[in-house]
Measured scan of single mutants.
Amino acid sequence: LSQDQINEYKECFSLYDKQQRGKIKATDLMVAMRCLGASPTPGEVQRHLQTHGIDGNGELDFSTFLTIMHMQIKQE
């Protein structure tokens, strides 16, 4: 990932990090990914979360979000 991409991801991540705690809700993951041009299915989002041990009510930090985005873009 280039620095530009990382900055773009950070900007989008921040939109969903409403309390500015450095985390977004798992329920916002799909929308955040789509905001960056990825098109994950609900099943793919579920798999990404399970891979990282996050349940549907959990939260993920930016580095986890980056990893998930990277995996998603590689497979699209």
Rank of each mutant, 00 (worst) to 15 (best):
L1T: 13
L1P: 03
L1R: 06
L1Y: 14
L1I: 14
L1M: 14
S2F: 10
S2T: 15
S2N: 15
S2Y: 08
S2M: 11
S2K: 11
Q3P: 08
Q3V: 05
Q3K: 15
D4P: 05
D4E: 06
D4Q: 05
D4A: 03
D4V: 06
D4Y: 07
D4H: 07
Q5H: 07
Q5W: 06
Q5I: 12
Q5T: 13
Q5R: 12
Q5M: 14
I6G: 06
I6N: 08
I6V: 08
I6D: 07
N7C: 07
N7A: 12
N7P: 06
N7K: 14
N7Y: 08
N7T: 14
E8W: 07
E8F: 06
E8V: 06
E8I: 07
E8Q: 11
E8P: 06
E8H: 10
Y9D: 01
Y9F: 13
Y9C: 14
Y9T: 09
Y9S: 07
Y9W: 14
Y9I: 14
Y9V: 11
K10R: 13
K10D: 05
K10C: 08
K10T: 09
K10W: 07
K10A: 12
E11F: 07
E11G: 10
C12S: 12
C12Q: 09
C12Y: 12
C12W: 05
C12T: 15
F13H: 01
F13P: 00
F13R: 00
F13W: 04
S14C: 06
S14D: 09
S14Y: 06
S14H: 10
S14K: 12
L15M: 11
L15R: 12
L15H: 13
Y16A: 03
Y16H: 10
Y16T: 02
Y16E: 01
Y16F: 11
Y16L: 09
Y16I: 05
Y16R: 03
D17Q: 03
D17I: 01
D17V: 03
D17F: 01
D17R: 01
K18M: 07
K18C: 08
K18E: 08
K18T: 11
K18P: 10
K18Y: 09
K18D: 05
K18F: 06
K18G: 06
Q19M: 12
Q19I: 03
Q19K: 13
Q20H: 10
Q20C: 13
Q20K: 09
Q20Y: 04
R21I: 12
R21Y: 04
R21L: 08
R21E: 11
G22P: 00
G22N: 09
G22R: 04
G22A: 04
G22D: 08
K23Y: 09
K23Q: 11
K23F: 10
K23A: 13
I24N: 01
I24L: 07
I24S: 00
I24W: 01
K25T: 10
K25G: 11
A26K: 04
A26T: 11
A26Y: 03
A26F: 03
A26N: 04
A26D: 05
T27P: 09
T27K: 10
T27M: 12
D28T: 05
D28Q: 08
L29P: 00
L29N: 00
L29C: 12
M30V: 13
M30E: 14
M30T: 13
M30K: 14
M30N: 07
M30R: 12
V31N: 13
V31K: 09
V31G: 14
V31Q: 11
V31C: 09
A32R: 00
A32T: 10
M33W: 01
R34F: 07
C35R: 14
C35N: 11
C35H: 10
C35S: 13
C35W: 12
C35A: 14
L36I: 05
L36T: 11
L36E: 02
L36G: 10
L36Q: 06
L36C: 12
L36D: 02
G37L: 04
G37T: 04
A38P: 05
A38L: 10
A38G: 10
A38I: 10
A38F: 14
S39M: 15
S39F: 05
S39C: 15
S39H: 15
S39V: 08
S39K: 15
S39Q: 05
T41I: 11
T41V: 07
T41N: 02
G43C: 07
E44L: 01
E44W: 15
E44R: 02
E44G: 04
E44V: 07
R47G: 01
H48R: 09
L49G: 01
L49E: 00
L49S: 03
L49V: 03
Q50I: 15
H52R: 10
H52S: 03
H52N: 03
I54N: 04
G56E: 03
G56R: 08
G56K: 15
G56V: 14
G56M: 15
N57I: 02
N57Q: 15
N57T: 13
N57M: 07
N57D: 15
G58F: 04
G58D: 08
G58V: 04
E59S: 06
E59Q: 12
E59W: 05
L60E: 00
L60Y: 01
L60P: 00
L60W: 00
D61S: 11
D61W: 02
D61Y: 15
D61E: 04
F62H: 02
F62K: 02
F62N: 00
F62A: 04
F62I: 05
S63F: 12
S63L: 07
S63K: 13
S63T: 06
S63E: 14
T64I: 08
F65G: 01
F65M: 03
L66G: 11
L66W: 07
L66V: 12
L66F: 03
L66T: 15
L66I: 11
T67I: 05
T67S: 03
T67N: 03
I68M: 12
I68D: 00
I68P: 00
I68V: 12
I68T: 04
I68Y: 01
I68N: 00
M69L: 07
M69N: 05
M69V: 08
M69C: 12
M69K: 01
H70D: 03
M71L: 12
M71T: 05
M71V: 15
M71I: 03
I73F: 04
K74N: 14
K74R: 03
E76C: 10
E76I: 12
E76Q: 15
E76M: 09
E76S: 12
E76A: 12
